[in-house]
Amino acid sequence: MNNQTHFFYAIRIPETTKMNMKEQMDRLKELFPFKRWVHHQDLHITLAFLGAAQQDKLQQAEKNVAEILNGEKPFTLKINKLGIFGMKESPRVFWADTEENHELQDIRKKVFTACERAGFQLETRPFKAHITLARKWSGDQPFQMKWLEKWTELQPETLAFTAKEVVLYQTHLTKTPKYEAISVYPLQT
């Protein structure tokens, strides 16, 4: 296993929302056999994955992100449904998404650009705001999308929260929880 540390920028999810999601995840674990479930303290929305980072590039990214987020305001996000990445019969990632939000798209674009200006080569796939819940399907039978639709029907409300911080996280693969906040960028009210 590669123990090299990685860095990424993300929207921090508030503690109360993490606890609400933990309750939901505990129920989901009974229905969906995934190999690894994310620790609730590690829940976040990734904005830019930097990977392994040279110190000078990381410092430049921190400076750029601080400048570009200066004056940005908090905004509301609503977690509203579940989905998967990977093969439909054996998903690689199980996630919760947020309703479309222009403020989130704008913040992501600014953070992404600030990191590119610092010299990072970032993921080029289109941005899909999501909160990873689990990884690697391990069920005895193939995963079926209709299970997610049924779960969504049972959930009468969305989980709403105010995004108040962008955070630079460092990954510690041998710890639980495994993400450590290195720099915090408050969105000012």
Rank of each mutant, 00 (worst) to 15 (best):
H6A: 08
I11F: 12
R12G: 09
I13S: 02
N20R: 15
Q24F: 08
Q24K: 09
M25W: 02
E30Q: 15
E30G: 15
F34Q: 03
V38D: 00
D42P: 02
L43G: 08
L43P: 05
I45G: 03
I45D: 05
F49I: 04
L58I: 08
L58A: 10
Q60R: 12
I68S: 13
E72H: 12
K73R: 12
P74H: 05
L82R: 06
G83H: 12
F85R: 09
M87D: 14
K88D: 14
A96F: 01
H102K: 14
Q105M: 11
D106K: 15
F112W: 11
T113E: 12
T113D: 13
E116C: 05
E116P: 00
F120I: 09
T124S: 10
H130N: 14
T132L: 01
A134S: 08
W137I: 03
Q141G: 00
F143T: 13
F143P: 14
Q144S: 04
Q144G: 00
L148I: 11
T152L: 07
E153F: 08
E153T: 07
L154M: 09
Q155L: 12
F161C: 02
F161H: 02
A163E: 00
E165Y: 14
Q170R: 15
Q170I: 03
P177D: 05
K178W: 02
A181K: 07
I182M: 10
V184T: 14
V184W: 06
